[in-house]
């Protein structure tokens, strides 16, 4: 392989010392790189051209960062919106996602309350909180709505001890007709409840 002749500077030197040195320099042997080195360099140049370009490493990292940012944005947005509110149905009953939808309608429960009050109680307990929360804004007004305990008390009758106390008071007051009626009611509601001997007379 030969050198390009342009590499030999042939401009006239204005410095006579440098011109003398250059003249002597051109007499030196023009050492060339060994052929093996030439081949090694050319092979390196060729290999670098044939080597496929590296994939853009930053692209993967960038995509991962975008995914993380989007996920965080979604989480933050959901936190700002708060939990999903329950959707009431047209009758005001709450439709909980975890609670199975009751198969019976409100009218059916009301009918059950009239027919068999005690039998309807467990199912009433499930729907009562939602109904009570719906009814709270109405508490300031004179309404006919009553707490669930009062409804249950009515269904089962008053507390037997209090009832007995009231009947003893009627007896002491000599209001025997009223006592007879209360006692009959008591027997219907609490047939097996023991009565004090004063009321058994």
């Amino acid at each position: 392989m030969n050198s390009d002749p342009r590499d030999k500077p042939n401009k006239p030197e204005f410095d006579p010392d440098l011109a003398a040195v250059r003249s002597a320099w051109e007499g030196l042997e023009q050492t060339e790189p060994p052929d093996l080195i030439d081949q090694a360099v050319l092979n390196t140049a060729r290999r670098h051209l044939e080597r496929p370009r590296r994939p853009l490493r930053w692209l993967g990292a960038f995509a991962s960062a975008i995914v993380v940012v989007l996920a965080l944005a979604i989480v933050v947005r959901q936190d700002q919106q708060g939990p999903v509110p329950p959707v009431p149905d047209s009758d005001g009953f709450r439709m909980d996602r975890d609670t199975p939808v009751p198969a019976k309608t409100k009218q059916e429960y009301e009918q059950m309350m009239q027919d068999e009050p005690r039998k309807a109680r467990p199912e009433l307990r499930q729907i009562a909180p939602a109904a009570a929360s719906e009814a709270q804004p109405m508490q300031g007004k004179e309404t006919q709505l009553r707490p669930l305990d009062a409804v249950e008390e009515d269904a089962a009758g008053p507390d037997p001890e209090a009832w007995i106390e009231r009947m003893l008071a009627l007896r002491a007051a000599g209001r025997l007709e009223e006592l007879e009626a209360e006692l009959a009611d008591f027997r219907r509601s609490w047939p097996d409840y023991p009565l004090p001997p004063e009321l058994l007379d």
Partner: peptide, 17 residues
């Protein structure tokens, strides 16, 4: 690659020396 061959031939001697 041919361009590099030409470039290399042009500069190999002076750079080596």
């Amino acid at each position: 690659m041919a361009a590099f061959d030409c470039l290399y031939a042009r500069h190999r001697g002076p750079l080596y020396r």
